[in-house]
Simulated scan of single mutants.
Amino acid sequence: MEGAGEKRREQSVLKLILELGPLLIFFLVNARADNWDLKRFGLFQHVAEKDVGIMAATGAFMTATILALTISLILYRRVPVMPLVSGVIVVAFGGLTLYLQDDLFIKLKPTIVNLMFAAALLGGLFLLKRPLLGIVFDGVLQLDEEGWRKLSLRWGLFFLFLAALNEVVWRSFSTDTWVTFKVFGTMPITILFTLCQLPLIQRHALPQN
């Protein structure tokens, strides 16, 4: 049993690294790009000086995201739905950012992803009359129907909040501030929200066989 617990902890740490790694690379490249004289490379010769950092960070973010998804597929033979959807949009909007040399697209990516998740969860509740969160996390959590409905509603509203918050930050502050918030602001907020759901999960948890 102790060996199995240790293995689960190692897998949890690895999954966390695969999820956070691309974001940390995004932040580090954006923060350090000015010191690397990237304008000497053909890819950045026609990029405005002020945009070199975010363009380099976007390319690194796309590469790291693809690598993380590939490693997940190799190790676990599957990629979870949420990281997969987010990864596809990173590549799509990151590609538009680099092709058009306009950081608007990479800044819109969190808004689009969060709106998609919110639409799926809230649409499932009010249109399909099904708590879709139960389908995604059924192998991790065992809750009664009411628990899944409440949790789906809360997460749906939380994703709407994250989408609105991203819009406020990128429209109101500098690109560097937005990158810092994306990496070091969104994750703590999400962790705090997740912890706040533990009482609900405990109330509606099904007995373990």
Results as ranks from 00 to 15, higher is better:
residue 196 C to R: 12
residue 27 F to D: 00
residue 78 R to Q: 09
residue 59 G to P: 05
residue 62 M to I: 13
residue 14 L to Q: 08
residue 186 T to K: 07
residue 121 L to Y: 01
residue 68 A to R: 01
residue 120 A to P: 06
residue 139 G to F: 11
residue 48 A to T: 05
residue 205 A to E: 15
residue 79 V to R: 08
residue 24 L to Q: 01
residue 134 G to P: 02
residue 122 L to I: 04
residue 144 D to S: 13
residue 206 L to K: 15
residue 91 V to H: 03
residue 126 F to K: 14
residue 8 R to Y: 11
residue 36 W to Q: 10
residue 70 T to W: 12
residue 14 L to I: 13
residue 172 S to G: 14
residue 162 L to S: 01
residue 117 F to E: 06
residue 190 T to N: 08
residue 63 T to F: 02
residue 64 A to P: 03
residue 78 R to L: 04
residue 123 G to K: 04
residue 59 G to M: 15
residue 34 D to W: 09
residue 184 F to I: 04
residue 209 N to H: 12
residue 176 D to M: 05
residue 83 P to G: 02
residue 179 V to G: 01
residue 79 V to L: 09
residue 6 E to P: 05
residue 175 T to Y: 01
residue 176 D to Q: 08
residue 194 T to M: 14
residue 95 G to S: 04
residue 51 D to I: 00
residue 145 E to I: 08
residue 162 L to P: 00
residue 7 K to Q: 15
residue 115 L to R: 03
residue 49 E to F: 03
residue 2 E to V: 07
residue 118 A to Q: 10
residue 103 D to G: 07
residue 134 G to W: 06
residue 103 D to S: 13
residue 84 L to V: 11
residue 2 E to D: 15
residue 140 V to T: 09
residue 113 V to N: 00
residue 16 L to F: 14
residue 121 L to P: 00
residue 4 A to T: 10
residue 22 P to K: 03
residue 174 S to H: 12
residue 66 I to P: 01
residue 44 F to A: 00
residue 46 H to C: 08
residue 96 L to V: 11
residue 91 V to Y: 03
residue 133 L to E: 02
residue 54 I to H: 02
residue 169 V to Q: 12
residue 154 R to D: 04
residue 31 A to L: 05
residue 171 R to S: 13
residue 8 R to I: 15
residue 117 F to R: 05
residue 154 R to F: 06
residue 10 E to V: 12
residue 26 F to Y: 05
residue 144 D to H: 13
residue 39 K to I: 03
residue 128 L to Q: 13
residue 159 F to V: 08
residue 36 W to F: 15
residue 120 A to R: 07
residue 177 T to H: 14
residue 204 H to V: 02
residue 17 I to K: 01
residue 7 K to H: 12
residue 9 R to Q: 14
residue 170 W to F: 15
residue 53 G to Q: 01
residue 3 G to D: 14
residue 41 F to C: 14
residue 43 L to C: 12
residue 93 F to P: 00
residue 130 R to D: 05
residue 179 V to E: 01
residue 52 V to N: 00
residue 109 K to I: 07
